[in-house]
Design a protein around this nucleic acid. Structure first.
Lengths: 292, 292
DNA sequence: GGCCAAGATGAGCAGCGCTTAACTTCATTA
DNA sequence: TAATGAAGTTAAGCGCTGCTCATCTTGGCC
């Protein structure tokens, strides 16, 4: 492979018209230019200069080579600049996963902060439950993901790095018509209620089951959904009560959200990523998330 | 400047999927590949691989870089091939000058021979008198030139290299009607003739003057031309006699060409070029010319 | 549990490419 | 004609680079 350094020097020589001028321009000694050009001639197997007293004259081969080398040298420099931009996080793409509620709440604010930090970055968003996102982070399809884990339902994040973002207390959703509870409610007092529960098999459903088991009852379930808006609607229609994390609470005149009495049970929200911080945008994104 | 060797290795790694496979493919040791990629990462300032047990996974930056580098690397290789072709004389251009008669006689045969030697070569032809061509060879506008020099009119070729191609005897052109001379003629016997001479100031005219001066007379000139066909026409019309080199003789029933008696006076035909054999096509062309 | 494969790391060594310095060759100028 | 200076070349020296070889680490696999 022809040496780009020598080709750059060749172009400088052809442009400047002499070894000495090219040396000045490139911050070399004339000797270095002379040796580089001699080496390039050896590599090409063709004379690149006619040696005249006090000057050199580029041959047709040298002029052609200088011309041919211009494009690739510029392209390499452009590639270097683009990669440097990626290194600084000015360009590049970050693939982010998030559980549905986070996508609507935490993420937009974090992404706004990221945009301020790295205006050129592209972000690809994937919504899904932690069980779906974690494998994608592990195998590299995602750079990071927002996931949750109930205190009572441990999840497996393998070797991924977890950064805790927040701990959400769980709330009980009651129809607004219910006046029999005030500032808080004990779960055991809900043993005779009908529950609006998460879908069977989900971490939320397992969490509810374990909470109730700790309170010595099995919840009677009337409806199931993983969509907190749906759950609120059902509760507001007095079709049951629900236990949801704080992010699942929204202003709704038909629904009251009441803290649980006793030891606080929570859902933690984590961001997970591979230990290798391979994407330069990962650090700013983590910073943005922590700042929310 | 990013190192093309490392970029080539990067592409091999991204293609092959592992350092070891790339090493095998490129005839390196795995250690060399590992060190090259570490150096490239240092140069880029961005992780190019996620290190997993027993494998590496190229990051988005690595894939982008491999993609970006493909073009320039291929272009550099293509440039190298083209220059190698020029070095072998398979392509490239040779700029040849020749005096007018040579252009019609010696050159075509030499160029046919050159075409056999280097089929891909391009030849640029310039016709002109030696006084015009020699400076063009000296300053590089021509690679070589066919020139002549009369024995009696020395020419200045500066530092150019001269290769003698042939020595042309001079001939006297007489109207065919002239029966008073047979196998040869002494110049002194032509002292009362009218001459068809080369243009004043040309080497041919100087040659005629000096020849005649040596024979103790000044030629009476009726017509002047540097075109041998014109001169033959004038002689054939019995408007004078002429002295021309052998290349100026052509079959013509109205004209007889007779050798000069006495010490042979000649015109030498040389090829001249700069001492630096900078054009790879120069050597084959010289060979072709010598072969004519 | 032992083995193997992939990659990382350190030592060592050869070669490359720079600078410095001295030399050659001309052109310019006194 | 001699001195000066500029351009290029060449030799010496040295530090850095980049390879190989050897060794180590890690984790999958029989």
């Amino acid at each position: 492979m022809l040496d780009p350094t020598q080709l750059t020097t060749l172009r400088a020589v052809v442009d400047a018209g002499s070894f000495a001028a090219a040396a000045t321009q490139l911050q070399y000694t004339p000797s270095a230019v002379s040796q580089q050009m001699a080496a390039l001639e050896r590599a090409c197997g063709v004379p690149l200069f006619e040696r005249l007293p006090h000057q050199v004259r580029p041959t047709a081969a040298a002029q052609r080579l200088a011309e041919l080398a211009g494009g690739p040298l510029a392209d390499l420099a452009a590639a270097e600049r683009e990669i440097a931009g990626m290194a600084r996080g000015e360009e590049g793409r970050l693939r982010v996963g998030a559980f549905p509620t986070a996508g609507a709440t935490i993420l937009p604010r974090a992404l706004a902060a990221l945009r301020r930090l790295t205006p050129g970055a592209e972000v690809e968003l994937v919504e899904g439950e932690p069980e779906l996102l974690v494998p994608q982070v592990q195998d590299g399809r995602l750079d990071l993901a927002l996931v949750y884990e109930y205190d009572l339902v441990s999840a497996d994040f393998g070797t991924l790095v977890r950064v805790a973002l927040r701990h959400e207390p769980l709330r009980v959703l009651l129809p607004a018509s219910r006046r029999d509870v005030s500032v808080s409610v004990r779960l055991a007092d809900l043993r005779d209620e009908t529950f609006v529960a998460p879908l069977e098999g989900s971490a939320g459903a397992a969490n509810l089951d374990r909470m109730c088991a700790a309170a010595r009852f099995r919840p009677r379930v009337s409806f199931r959904s993983n969509d907190y808006a749906v759950m609120r609607g059902l509760v507001g229609a007095a079709l049951g009560v629900a236990v949801v994390p704080e992010l699942g609470v929204a202003p709704d005149r038909a629904v009251r959200a009441v803290p649980l009495a006793g030891r606080p049970l929570r859902r933690r929200v984590d961001v997970v990523h591979r230990p290798t911080a391979a994407n330069p945008l990962l650090a700013p994104m983590l910073a943005a998330l922590r700042g929310v």
